[in-house]
Amino acid sequence: MTNPVIRLEFKKFGGLKYISHLDLQRAVLRFIKRAGIPIRYTEGFNPHPKLVFALTLSVGTESDCELVDIYLARDPENPETPIITPDTFVSRLGAVLPKGLEIVSAYFPETDFADIESSDYLITLFKSCDIDVAKRLSEILSEPLEIVKKGKAGERVVNIVPMVFSWEVLEENGETCTLRATLCARQNEYLNPDHFVKGLMSKCPEIDNWLVKRVSINFKEGK
């Protein structure tokens, strides 16, 4: 192994779900440092620690399965061997993590974030009046659903339906409708679940609030 890396899978919930992705990155880094886990710094003029997150997570979104690759400092005597095992990593980091961040597992990764295909979400939609959301969703998603995406190159209109790989209503009552959806998470085609919901709301204004939780990150088959 030329690149000693540990992949951490963790949950993000409670008050911590209200921090931005950038703040989450800083927080994770800080706790890793507090745990005394030696991390590697990038070379160059302004060295910074090397942590790579699989996917971004919007403010307000909970997650059961965030992935981050932590590049470990190299032992000069033994540069090929990781200087910490996943077990030690878990026990040290677990001792300092606050409520709101919880370790699921840590391991030496065998997959590459570039091969991420999709991500699954549990989405709870709140209704302002009693309508059949399941039925409305089938209608909405059977034809193109366009949203405005703001990117570096300005605004562009995208049809998001092809990026909705599958969806299924798990439960519906007078006030809420809970669904599980698999949305595209490829590198250049990431569908933000908030954008998905906002797209639905543009066609179905009776939805007036929502909650999202990421429940899995899926890699390409065979990877």
Binding site: G14, G15, L16, Y18, I19, S20, D23, V59, G60, P98, K99, G100, N209
Partner: peptide, 23 residues
């Protein structure tokens, strides 16, 4: 976070200002 406060968080900028619960 109190529930009635949490309900407001979706509508405001930088909700992390209001949650407390920091380490």
């Amino acid at each position: 976070i109190r529930q009635d406060i949490e309900k407001l968080l979706k509508y405001v900028e930088k909700p992390g200002r209001y949650t407390g619960g920091e380490e």
